[in-house]
Design a protein around this nucleic acid. Sequence first.
DNA 1: GTCTATAGGGTGATAGAC
DNA 2: GTCTATCACCCTATAGAC
Lengths: 185, 185
Amino acid sequence: MASASKRERLTAAAQRVFHEQGVEKTTLADIARVADVPLGNVYYYFKTKDQLVQATIDSHAEYLGNLTDELGRLDSPGKRLKGLIDFWVSGRDLAARYGCPFGTLTVELDKREDGLDQAAGEVMRKLIDWCAAQFRSLGCDDAPDLAITLVGAYQGMAVLANALRDPSIMEREGHRLGEWIDSLG
Amino acid sequence: MASASKRERLTAAAQRVFHEQGVEKTTLADIARVADVPLGNVYYYFKTKDQLVQATIDSHAEYLGNLTDELGRLDSPGKRLKGLIDFWVSGRDLAARYGCPFGTLTVELDKREDGLDQAAGEVMRKLIDWCAAQFRSLGCDDAPDLAITLVGAYQGMAVLANALRDPSIMEREGHRLGEWIDSLG
DNA sequence: GTCTATAGGGTGATAGAC
DNA sequence: GTCTATCACCCTATAGAC
C-alpha cells in the first residue's frame, strides 16, 4: 500500500531530523524533503506538526518494546541488563554527535505542557519499570531506585559524550555499569 | 549605569526564558518583555539572538566559577564534592520542571555546529576538570573517569527527574552519590 | 489520494526619529 | 542611548485542482 509507505517514510524522516536538529528548529519542509514527499502532501497523513512528534514518540516506544522483548529471551536478569547496556554503547557515535535519540527529544518536550511532554515521560517510565523488574529478579529489594540509577547513568553519559563529542565516554561508563551489575548478582 | 543594568536584565531574562522554553522556541519579544525592555532596544545591546545565547553561556560559566571558588574553601576534597552534590540537589524543583539549567541548554546547542555548541561543551569540561582535581586530591588514580561518572550521574538524574516530574529522584540519587564519595575517601 | 499555490501569522533584524 | 515603526522572510496550515 503506497499510502502506508509514505506515512512510514514521513515518520522515519521526522524521527531522524528531530534527532539531528531538534523539534522546534525542524520545519515540515525539512521532513518532507528527507522523506521525498511533497510539502503539501504531509498534511494528508499528519494534520499538525505535533502529530508527527507524537508519531515519533510512538516509534521510539515501539522500538524499545521490541528491544526489551528480545532481551527478555536471555536466561538471566543480569544478562538482560547487560544486553541493554551493550545496546546503549553500540549507539555511542550517534549519541556523541546528536545525543540520545530519545533522551534529547524528551528533554526538549519537557519544556512544554501540552501532553507531549507526558507522552515522552511515560515511555521513559516504561523502560525504567522494565529495568526495575530485572533488578527485582536479581533479588535486589531497592529495585526501583537501582533502575533510576541505571537509566540515569545512561542519560548522563549520553549528555557528556554529546557535550564533549567523545563516544569513548560511553564505552568506559558502559563497562563500569556492566561490572556494577555483576557485583549485584 | 543604566545601560549596564539593562544589559544585565536582558542577560538574566534570556537565561531564564531559554531555560523555561528552550532557545529555538524563545523569541526576542519574549526576552524583551521579561526584561522590561522595548523590543527594538534589544539590538543596541545584542546584535543577534546568538549573542544572547553566548551571554547566557558566559553567565553560566561565571556562576559555576564562583560556586567552585566557594567550595574550594572547604578543607577537604570530599567535602567539596559533597558540597557540589548538595548544590545540585538544592535545585531539584526547578530541575524537575525544566531540567538542569545548563544541561538542557547544552543538549539543545549540541545539535548545532556553529561554535555555540563548543562554547557550552567547554563550560561542561571545566566543571568535570574541577571534579577530577578533587578526586585526585582524594588519592584516586582514575580521577578523570570518576569525574565523568559524577557529573554524568547529575545530568542523568536531572533528565529523569524532569521526564518523570519527580524532584525526589534527585534527593535519593544525591544521597547515593554522597555515600559513594565517602566510600572513596 | 496526490500535489500546487498561497493564505495568514509571526520572526529576526533594520532604519531612523528623538 | 533609547525607542517606534516596519521590512523581508519563513513557517504552519489550508483551499482546491487533478
